[in-house]
Write a protein that binds this DNA or RNA. Structure first.
Lengths: 234, 234
DNA sequence: AACATTCATGATGTCAACAAATAGTCGAAG
DNA sequence: CTTCGACTATTTGTTGACATCATGAATGTT
């Protein structure tokens, strides 16, 4: 910590954010099935709030792309298809190449410290061998990367796919298991290194390699593991 | 129209979308001042609806980046700064380069027809000499471009800055006046041409030129016309 | 006179009840 | 037995009222 006291916003959050966070976590940790319908009154009762905040929270989650809403039919948790995976990979690559180039140009020392801290947390969690937290810390490193770009709208764009990316990694974690074991630490260290060097060219190359390593294996996993839900009935 | 009857979703929209569209238009046509506070009950009364739909509409507009919301303080129409302009230009360029490359690869004949129709509408409006509609048709061409990419999440990313782009062009229209007069038709025709040729390289170059022509002049306009609001008081 | 405190005002946040619409069920006709 | 249609039940869309908070004016103090 270099400077003095960072004034933290201390924003008062309403129930909407609270509810949204609850539902989000419930989706991520598997408490809610993929494709499941989200009953407003059910959620409201469970969280001891009225339906108003629940509705606004659902709108928020819809914007994050992890639930869909249909008129008078309600909200459903998304089930990402192979095409969705490809879309996410493509758009994320575009955004992140831009992000790392901006970061290479504009990152402060504090940003680099945050990135380093994220890598360290990742290394530490590595020995625990828990895929769930490992994936979350992976995404949090990329959060730090986007933040280092100091670009509000880029951050918003990332936010609108972040939950989907996290969800896709979590649901397909078995497919990316050995990848994580081998490469995750080394590649993130490399990303930190090239950002620190402020070599935009090297940054772009490193991030492309990293995302390819992540998604090539993931997309191919659809060929083997994708199960149509119709076969499971009766 | 090549094929038969395109089944249009015929989605029933709720009041929320209706309200959002109203406010959006009011912002664009200048009925609402930039920076103005949006009173929920005032809007609700004016549109003869309750506050519920109004609140949800404001959340939607917040996601589009044309209003900001603070806890217990309400919603305000954004005032884009010079930095905001730069952010919009940078992110839009990244997205649109991606979009035109995807379009070059995946555009159908129907997409090309839509693009051609957009160019034609632009040419037609050119003689009317109305900046307001000219700018809107410009943006609609780019809508068609993004749609031709057939990439849902890219479209969402564009949607989340589209209103801001439109607003920025409308508020600075005097600065881009002569630009539009000279280049707008030719450049859009060029874009249509390179997409049709499916030459990804040429596409990227053309879109970069087009966006540079749009934004270089716009950003520089801040140096001359930007007035700090503090000097106007008393 | 200048400043801090109190309190009234008006806004947003939240809630519970009402209206509208969908989906599944039951029944009758072919 | 199948199919079409109406009906009922459940869920969402909308509303008006209540609770909570921020703002600014009025008042008392130094």
């Amino acid at each position: 910590m270099s400077g003095g006291l960072e004034i933290q916003p201390a924003r008062r959050r309403g129930l909407t954010d609270e509810v949204a966070e609850n539902i989000r976590q419930a989706i991520f940790d598997g408490s809610l099935e993929l494709g499941e319908r989200l009953n407003e009154v059910d959620i409201a009762d469970r969280l001891q709030v009225s339906r108003g905040p629940v509705r606004e929270a659902l709108v928020q989650l819809k914007q994050e792309g992890i639930v869909t809403m249909e008129w008078h039919r309600g909200a459903f948790i998304v089930q990402l298809s192979a095409d969705d995976f490809r879309e996410l990979a493509g758009l994320r690559t575009v955004l992140e190449v831009f992000a790392i180039r901006q970061a290479a140009a504009a990152a402060t020392q504090a940003d680099l410290n945050n990135l380093a801290a994220a890598v360290k947390a990742l290394s530490k969690a590595f020995v625990d061998q828990n895929d769930y937290v490992l994936i979350q810390l992976d995404v949090e490193f990329h959060d730090a990367l986007y933040r280092s770009a100091h670009h509000e709208r880029l951050w918003n764009a990332w936010s609108s796919i972040r939950s989907q990316v996290l969800l896709s990694l979590l649901t397909k974690r078995h497919a990316s298991n050995e990848y994580y074991r081998d490469l995750v630490i080394a590649e993130h260290e490399e990303l930190l290194r090239v950002i620190s060097s402020r070599d935009a060219r090297a940054c772009e190359k490193a991030i492309r390699v990293h995302l390819s390593d992540t998604y090539d294996r993931l997309v191919s996993s659809f060929d083997s593991v994708d199960v149509p839900p119709t076969s499971a009935e009766h």
